[in-house]
Design a protein around this nucleic acid. Structure first.
Lengths: 195, 195
DNA sequence: CCCAACACTGACGTCAGTGTCAGTTGAATA
DNA sequence: TATTCAACTGACACTGACGTCAGTGTTGGG
């Protein structure tokens, strides 16, 4: 892949991300994307098979980066406390998401129900996230850091709350200060809502 | 509206709900819907303007019913404890959602990004839900039942966790026993995850 | 400077799904 | 039984987004 092709490809992906975030996958057309990029319709097809492929690539990339920013909790003697490590993980993901609002909109709210094959890929991403968190929680329960309870349900609620907060932050419905968001999430994990 | 028309309309709505839940809004066609109902394509247009209108009606109806099943917390002397009332509210919504898995799939995961006007309606539903919960939390904070913190962020996280749990329950990713779900939600609200 | 390989163009044919409407059915009433 | 009209049908014309490809630049190594 020549540098020139690389750049054009990047331009198309960026334009597609913006268009999808603005109009949603359904309403977006290939013409919108090439229009924003400033190239002809045919050029698009020199880089991608169709609208769905670009979308899938955007979403998959983003999820991969989110997953990559999560570090397993270390229990070694010299390691920071699990709470600190948890907070650091939250901070990294929140920071990444705030830096890429378009991807958050696409990936967390419009990605499902678009295409059966893509749904499959997303489901498998979530499945591994669930497994990872389930194992983390199991360790936490064993060492008395996490309260008792059905871990699958805990994971569902935690992921859902997390994603919703990020969506709302990115869409402007709630303030989007990184530290505040992380504090709010930690507080929820530490003590819920009720006194 | 004659009883016969009423019934046909209902049939079309039910079929549409199933089709949307199966294939998602994008992939679903009017032919799918009339095919399942067993009527001709033209009949559909005697009852609805287009695919989007049916979808909007399904989603709006469902949200209205969910909203209608929530009762404000009573603080009077003879009333049950706020915790009991909260649990009862959770129970009613969970029960409604478990009884209508198709609507949960449609409304919570595929409804966004389909159409600008529908997004608007959904946003306004969520806005009033947020307002309602914000006011409830404010009262709770005043009487020392809810911990301190930015209420908007609390509401986001709570709604997100709630919806995700229901989606996962309906899709079979986690067990869908009503009492277990309500217990898990209450536990999260009562003490989060960490000990 | 040349020209071959690469990058790009945009008019065009295609097609899946749409919405319509002239005609048919059948239930209810006189 | 005749009459009426709401309910329904499905072939048809239409739309707009899609993907293609023959032809037009553009670039850089020789």
């Amino acid at each position: 892949m020549t540098p020139r092709r690389e750049k054009r490809r990047r331009e198309l992906l960026d334009a597609a991300r913006d268009i999808f975030a603005e109009k949603g996958f359904v309403a977006a057309t290939v013409d919108d994307i090439v229009g924003r990029t400033g190239v002809a319709r045919g050029t698009f097809y020199l880089y991608f098979d169709d609208k769905l492929q670009v979308f899938g690539e955007l979403v998959s990339d983003f999820f991969a980066r989110v997953a990559g920013s999560i570090r397993p909790i270390e229990l070694g003697a010299g390691a920071p406390t699990p709470r600190e490590q948890l907070r650091a993980n939250l901070g990294r993901v929140v920071s990444l998401c705030l830096a890429e609002p378009g991807n958050v909109k696409i990936a967390f709210s419009t990605a499902f129900g678009v295409d059966a094959a893509l749904d499959e890929r997303l489901a498998s991403f979530y499945a591994s996230l669930h497994t990872f968190m389930d194992e983390t929680l199991e360790t936490g329960q064993r060492i008395g850091l996490i309260r008792a309870g059905d871990r699958r349900l805990m994971v569902s609620i935690a992921i859902g709350g997390f994603e919703q907060l990020l969506q709302d932050a990115v869409s402007g419905a709630v303030p989007s200060d990184e530290a505040e968001l992380v504090d709010a999430l930690m507080a929820f994990l530490e003590s819920g809502l009720l006194v």
